[in-house]
Design a protein around this nucleic acid. Structure first.
Lengths: 253, 253
DNA sequence: GGTGCAAGAATGGTCAGATGACTGAGACGT
DNA sequence: ACGTCTCAGTCATCTGACCATTCTTGCACC
């Protein structure tokens, strides 16, 4: 049985399954420097032999690491280590945004509030005129959407909302922070669409709050930007906390 | 070819591979309410048939969702949806802590600083006498470790350090926040051990800072606790940012 | 009737082999 | 030099068989 020999070869790694052997083996290759960002792995057949597992088990382990953003497979070419950037490694965080239970919506929004307030504060000092013009353009587009009420394109509104938050997060200059916010904001489309549909008034309110945030960003005032962003998200957080028992009650700003 | 029929059955889901079909299919079962926390999935053979894929492809998809904390498989029993708690869904975040490149250590620490400062502030209002006694016991244990210098058990020191931060995060009352901190703190053992070994002085300094944090927590002063925690992590963040090019230079407080 | 144990059924875990789909490199033609 | 085609290499998928683990059920004993 190859499991015994594999455990012997890697003392301290309690391998519970062959797939765990694969995951631990590849992670070890990365941490010990044999593989780095962008490295190509040995072909499946050879790597399976090296790790003492079947090709099927190897594939299961590779698939797991792929969804974690560590590896990417290219059919016909090979399997590669990704850039291991925060954006890559944080993308699985979106599953939390998609699948958490309604009882936890408020908790998640509280985390977002903390992160996004920080990113707004950092961005206030870093935003260029070009960035600010781009943010202005996003909000101008929302004005256009609002002008077509009652036939507002709510899908488009959600997209602009996401773009607004994303742009600010990127301007923070911290890729880990931006990646985290991106994952938390970008994958809640369905719930936010639901809220926009059921509570039309929040669309205008959100736009007003976005304008207030942008004004402080333009003033390059970190603390005011932080406060504006925090209160923007706090409204929705309180809504979510109050409606934690409702079906699909996971709103977002 | 089953891929075509599967795409037809789930319009709007651009399935790129059979495993993607599986992942999207199971996620859909969760979001549309057919499966909930703790639910048992159909057996592999039946589920593969239902989704129109082979058992091997089904397994790859299940494995991917398992490592994301969405599913857990029990041999001989079946495959289950997890509790979908933040703790579960955030555990994959630890991969970021393990595999990010040194260039991003400072970024990650900055995120931790924001999150942990917030958790300290929340905890300051929520900590019970029992919690505070437990935190005191942790730091007393560290005093014992320090007393055995130069034969300090650094592994033990790292464990107590982790326990201290974890206990505070849990006391915040926000499981998403606690889960995130847990994932970011709990999986950086190797790098923190390296720092403790190479810079013995930081062990005493850390203990001093932990004592200061605990004093503010005992005083139930959210803002002072926030500041103490922030400056505690800021020191290491600045160290990491200054040594971003060094090998294994990912320290942590 | 209650308890414990063994056997069998159910189900996930693994492997091997075959075939299909895709990619990149090299050869060839213009 | 550039574009196109071919082929070898490699991942993607499927099938079938066997192994390992867990749970359920039946039976024996008290």
């Amino acid at each position: 049985m190859t499991e015994t020999s594999t455990v012997d070869e890697q003392p301290g790694i309690p391998a519970r399954s062959q797939t765990d052997v694969v995951i631990a083996g590849i992670k070890g290759m990365i941490t010990d420097g044999r593989l780095g960002p962008g490295s190509r792995l040995p072909i499946e057949r050879d790597l399976a032999t090296e790790l003492g597992v079947s090709r099927g088990s190897l594939r299961e382990g590779v698939r797991a690491l792929a969804i974690l953003g560590v590896l990417e497979t290219r059919q016909g070419d090979g399997t590669y280590v990704t850039s291991l950037d925060p954006e890559r490694l944080l993308s699985p965080l979106g599953i939390l945004a998609e699948l958490h239970t309604p009882a936890h919506a408020g908790h998640l929004l509280a985390v977002r509030r903390v992160l996004e307030a920080e990113s707004a504060a950092l961005a206030a000092s870093a935003l260029t005129d070009e960035d600010l013009a781009a943010l202005d353009a996003i909000l101008d587009e929302v004005d256009g959407i609002l002008a077509s009420d009652p036939d507002m394109d709510l899908e488009r509104f959600i997209d602009t909302d996401t773009a607004f938050h994303r742009r600010i997060a990127q301007a923070s200059g911290n890729p880990a922070l931006a990646g985290m916010i991106d994952s938390l904001v970008g994958r809640t489309h369905r719930a936010r669409l639901w809220r926009a549909i059921t509570e039309r008034g929040t669309v205008r309110e959100t736009q007003g709050e976005h304008r207030a945030i942008l004004a402080e960003l333009k003033a390059h005032d970190p603390e005011r930007a932080r406060i504006r962003m925090a209160v923007h998200i706090l409204g929705v957080e309180e809504f979510a906390t109050a409606h934690a028992g409702d079906e699909a009650s996971d709103p977002a700003p």
